[in-house]
Simulated assay, not measured.
Amino acid sequence: MVVSIAGALNQPGLRLTAGELLALRPLAPAAGRHRPATRRPGALPARFPGAGMDLRELRAWVEGDDPRRIDPSATARTGIPHIRSFHEDRDDTTLLIADFRGPMLWGTGDTLRSVRAARHLAAIGWQATMRGGNVAALVLTEAGLASLSAGQGDRQMAAVAQMLAGEHDLALTRHRSEGGGLAALAGRAARLVPPGSRIHLATAPQGIAPDDLSALARLARRRRLIVSLILDPAEVAPVPRALAVTDGAAFLMGRLQALDLGAELARLTAIGAQVEQVPS
């Protein structure tokens, strides 16, 4: 669906474009990238032996080895028991979750929080792509959820960029409503990516309700959950002078205070999430 964005909203920092997300692609492969030996897309060989598809070693059996790994062919050929071990496949799948609900469609600087969140997630997606991993995406708006199944390569990141830009346009033009919380996306996220995956959630501190914590905790049990709190300049370094606030009829003077995230960080850490603060 194509949404027409015109006037004041069609400005850099307010409207998100796929082009700016595609421009975040690194010019060269990430340092330390290696080509996985495993043949399963989006999986990397771990450093320890396991039950993957790719041969790790073939050697003589010693006391303590698992007899189920004895290789009949090598044993018959040498007359000595040999075992065969394989690399344990480790999923390198990254799920990018963008929160485009009301608290994210706001900002006191030159860029909406939602736009900064999309840029942050796109950079993470490009890093995963450059090391050969899978990338999936999930967007939460007031109207519900939109998802993109995992895939690899530049073409997948182009699809991610188009999805983020399109859903952001829709979020800007829709009437505000009582949309679902983060709890609504936990089940969808679990179906999109397997255990062992990374999940990057970009949201605002105001976007995490107490009822969301149990759902996020379930995600964090078998996946690595990283919550990126997108902070506004007014929350990090508010202006020191008093500001006038009006409802159109009356005026009040007040001072902004820096946001205290201590309690929020403690709650998220307690459920097993890793938290990072993303300032302007």
Rank of each mutant, 00 (worst) to 15 (best):
G262I: 01
G180V: 03
D66I: 12
D154Y: 04
R119Q: 13
R39T: 14
L9S: 08
I124Q: 14
L58I: 15
A118Q: 07
G109V: 03
L138S: 07
Q152Y: 00
A150L: 07
L170P: 00
D260A: 14
D99R: 11
A150K: 11
N134D: 04
P238R: 06
D66W: 12
R40V: 15
T38R: 04
A76Q: 11
A190E: 05
R223P: 03
P29I: 07
R222W: 07
G262V: 00
R33I: 03
A273S: 13
L22C: 14
L22V: 14
T173Y: 00
P238M: 08
A244K: 02
H168Y: 13
R116S: 08
A184H: 04
E178S: 05
R241C: 01
S114H: 01
P41Y: 14
T75K: 08
S197I: 01
G102W: 05
S4C: 01
E178L: 03
D54S: 15
L14C: 01
L140W: 06
A217W: 07
S73G: 10
V139G: 04
A244P: 00
D66A: 12
T203K: 02
R155H: 09
P72G: 06
I83R: 09
H168Q: 12
Q162R: 11
G102N: 09
A234V: 15
R198I: 01
L229E: 05
G64C: 05
A31M: 12
G32W: 15
R33V: 09
I226L: 15
A30R: 13
I199D: 00
V62K: 11
R222G: 04
A146R: 14
D99F: 10
G13Q: 02
R224N: 02
T246K: 00
R119F: 02
A117C: 06
N134I: 00
I70N: 01
A158H: 07
Q162T: 07
A150P: 06
G125H: 08
G109T: 05
